[in-house]
């Protein structure tokens, strides 16, 4: 009971914190204290956090190596754009339908491919992502190779921020639920999990579907911000970029994914003035990171846990000092 209470309190604190952050950023944006370039970067950070966190559910929590996240994003981007352009649906509905479409594709792809594991799954998902992109490239009704233009520019900072918060809360609670636990057990040892009566296929497909759903939402936000959806925004390299965010932060750590997404977006933006060396530095950073800190910034731990541990250690040190003093 006490744990539940403390968790609730923790959640409330997080919601309060996010309201404060939102208010501060919104005021800064409204008062035009942030240049348009950095406004764009803040929106991108939000979208990338949604993508990285949802990919973390698949790669980090469930341990299924997926390299096709940009494909799901593409589905969400195009479907939601079509919904708001052709059917004049309200933005929220369009986003939701885009997410559900990506989720459906995720299930359809997931059921056959998730029988594979490791490298084979990585390659199969990469192939699926590329097939989605090539199919879009060949559908003239959605613009084909020149992209879908004229999408209403509905995405605002508020939309991105609150969808990001909803995503993070959903994923956090999902990971701490029975389903999340079964996903973690699949990651740790699929055979042992199956022996314990966990439906491993269900856990994998569930993770895949939820991950795809949020990727679709992010795709919708993306296309409604730039008012264009172009196949070249959803290549294998984009999937790889989201994977990098997850791995940089630490596989399996939500805090890590948030940090990774923010950091990579920030680095990319900071190097935007030097386009010719940007990718070289980016690649070098990746290689060096893998050579010297392969577990990522946070390992598989959550920031809250590290924070609590730090506080406990302080407390312990304090009481330790006291007992020593008493002696």
């Amino acid at each position: 009971m006490q744990i539940i209470k403390s968790l609730r309190k923790y959640d409330l604190a997080l919601i309060a914190a996010s309201v404060v952050i939102f208010a501060v950023l919104e005021v800064l944006i409204d008062m035009r204290l942030i240049s348009s370039f950095w406004r764009l970067q803040i929106i991108l950070i939000g979208i990338n956090i949604i993508l990285a966190a949802s990919l973390n559910l698949i790669n980090g929590i469930t341990g299924q190596f997926s390299l096709g996240h940009a494909g799901f994003m593409a589905v969400g981007a195009y479907v939601s754009a079509i919904m708001s352009m052709w059917y004049d649906l309200p933005f929220g509905m369009a986003l939701l339908i885009g997410g559900l479409a990506a989720c459906l594709i995720g299930v359809l792809i997931g059921i056959p491919t998730l029988r594979l594991d490791g490298d084979y799954l990585a390659i199969a998902t990469l192939g699926m992502g590329e097939i989605i992109r090539i199919c879009i490239l060949n559908i003239q009704a959605v613009g084909g190779a020149s992209g879908l233009t004229g999408i209403p520019r509905n995405t605002t900072f508020a939309w991105v921020f609150w969808i990001m918060i909803i995503t993070l809360f959903f994923l956090k609670n999902m990971i701490n639920s029975t389903y999340g636990r079964s996903c973690i057990s699949v990651r740790e040892n699929a055979i042992a999990a199956a022996a314990m009566g966990i439906n491993t296929t269900f856990a994998k497909v569930l993770a895949f579907a939820i991950g795809a759903f949020f990727a679709g939402l992010a795709g919708g936000l993306f296309s409604h911000y730039f008012s264009i959806a172009h196949p070249s925004s959803f290549t294998f390299l984009n999937s790889y970029n989201y994977l990098t965010m997850v791995v940089l932060g630490g596989l399996g750590s939500m805090t890590g994914s948030i940090t990774g997404a923010a950091l990579i977006t920030f680095i990319t933006a900071a190097l935007a003035d030097y386009p010719e060396v940007r990718m070289i530095i980016y690649a070098l950073c990746l290689i060096l990171l893998m050579l010297f800190r392969p577990q990522g910034l946070f390992g598989s731990q959550e920031g809250s846990l590290l924070l609590r541990r730090l506080i406990n250690r302080r407390k312990e040190a304090g009481t330790h000092g006291k007992t020593l003093g008493n002696q």
């Binding site: 010719e276 070098l284 990746l286 392969p294």
Partner: peptide, 30 residues
């Protein structure tokens, strides 16, 4: 690049390989 990573996890080797690929491409481009 690959030798120091021989005992690391698969995902970090894969990320390194893709990083190496980007590095070669963009250095050549530069």
């Amino acid at each position: 690049v690959y030798k120091p990573l021989r005992s690391s996890s698969k995902i970090s080797i894969l990320i390194t390989a893709i990083g190496m690929s980007l590095f070669i491409e963009y250095t050549t481009m530069y």
